[in-house]
């Protein structure tokens, strides 16, 4: 029974969170803390911290966390299934339409105008991450004490390895993490 209500709650979260990540947060809070009381507000704050520190979308992280806490592994599976089901259905439908119709001239022109906008969305995501990496307080204020020179060095080295040496991106990302951890240990 608890698994069913977990599934239904996360189904709503999956269905109504447009724009990913931080848009989903208030929805998750409403379902998990306010409506059902599965987590306390403090535990929810911990969950947000953990989500920022671990890979994967916050909705999937929250589903696993809440599911495990309330109904063990079965709960985690039920909640995760609920939160990815709407995505899968919508995306499959759109992708089918795309595959069938993309040779239509009107759709080709539309997609050609859409692509630059998508590139700039990706650029925005990248710049947001870089600002939180380069500036200690997370805001782009150009005061000497606020700028992390070490992070800029890691970034430049990573960019060099990616573009000139054609290294595997995941290896480069992991290497940046290891370098920073090693530097803090010394």
């Amino acid at each position: 029974m608890i698994c069913l209500s977990l599934f239904l709650s996360f189904l709503q979260i999956g269905l109504f969170s447009f724009g990913g990540g931080y848009a989903a947060m208030p929805l998750i809070q409403e379902q998990v803390v306010t409506l059902h009381g599965w987590l306390s507000m403090e535990t929810f704050a911990d969950l947000v911290t953990i989500s920022e520190m671990t890979p994967g979308p916050i909705a999937v992280n929250a589903a696993t966390f809440v599911g495990t806490q309330t109904a063990g592994f079965a709960g985690a599976v039920a909640a995760t299934l609920g939160c990815v089901l709407p995505s899968c259905l919508f995306v499959t439908l759109l992708a089918f339409i795309y595959t069938r119709c993309r040779s239509l001239p009107i759709l080709q022109q539309t997609l050609a105008s859409l692509r630059p906008a998508v590139v700039s969305m990706i650029a925005k995501a990248g710049l947001t991450i870089l600002i939180s990496a380069f500036f200690l307080d997370g805001t782009a204020s150009l005061i000497r004490e606020n700028i992390s020179v070490r992070m800029i060095v890691w970034f430049a080295a990573a960019l060099f390895l990616l573009r000139k040496k054609k290294w595997n991106p995941i290896l480069v990302m992991a290497l940046c993490g290891i370098c920073e951890a090693a530097f803090c240990a010394v």
Binding site: M53, L130, I152, F155, A158, V172, G177, I178, E180, A181
Partner: peptide, 26 residues
């Protein structure tokens, strides 16, 4: 996990790498 300084340093360092991957693709 949340209070381990090594884990948070590694995650912080990875941001620079993630930023570089996105910059390269963009």
């Amino acid at each position: 996990f949340c209070s381990n300084p090594w884990i948070s340093a590694a995650l912080n360092g990875m941001k620079a790498g993630v930023g570089a991957v996105i910059t390269s693709v963009v």
